[in-house]
Amino acid sequence: MALLEVKDLSIEFGGLKAVQDVNFEVDNDEIVGLIGPNGAGKTTVFNLLTSVYQPTSGDIQLRGKSILGNPSWRTSDIGMVRTFQNIRLFRSLSVLDNVRIGFHNQGNYSLTAALLRLPSYWREEARYRERAQELLEIFQLADVAQVQARNLPYGQQRRLEICRALAASPLLLLLDEPAAGMNPTETHELMDMIRFVRDRFELAIMLIEHDMNLVMGICERLIVLDHGEVIARGLPEEIRANPRVIEAYLGTPFDDESEAANDE
């Protein structure tokens, strides 16, 4: 049984079919790329996975259980955490607090315990702090733990966002254009980091990306969307050579002969 199974997923906004009969699976420990030209429906698929939208038809199953009908905030409880195309950090809070908020879905002391500072508060807070510190060490953010998130340079903000997502200990990490706005060196570091995250935390990663070097470099499998439909899937080498994918990205080559043939 695959970790994530998406079956005949469709969503319509009014008359617009943003996603149509999309089927795919993500296995444990896989890095899967979701690519396609602008407006193909990639982010819509992510929004469906995280229950921001409810599909018109079809099903999404995580470890064999349907996640439809869940409120969006339950997504991280179930085991999926996402990052955002335009970084969304808690900007005026400290780096440490950003990560601690990531632990929210594992919290188990009550409001009463917080207000009265009962032992469970101290125990859990100590645990959060240690685990946050470890995560920050791993992502080289420990030195800036007390700095406001908005004051971090761009690359560190990206790392912090991934760090916060990992705090929720997901089974599947959804990265929405992680390399957006990065230069080639930073992108290269990011590739290393994505692989490292998968290995260290033993989770599956699904990513949307336009940077083909990154996609071809780290994805083990690719799913190509165009106009809301899956037009190809397979290994990066296969996708690279797939005529439909080339057509989706570059358009149909203008061909005099076929034009002439059509005229007749």
Binding site: W73, R74, V81, R82, F84, L89, F90, I101, H104, A168
Partner: peptide
């Protein structure tokens, strides 16, 4: 939005 994605109701 980020709060919701972090599992906050």
């Amino acid at each position: 939005i980020a709060a919701e994605a972090s599992g906050i109701n």
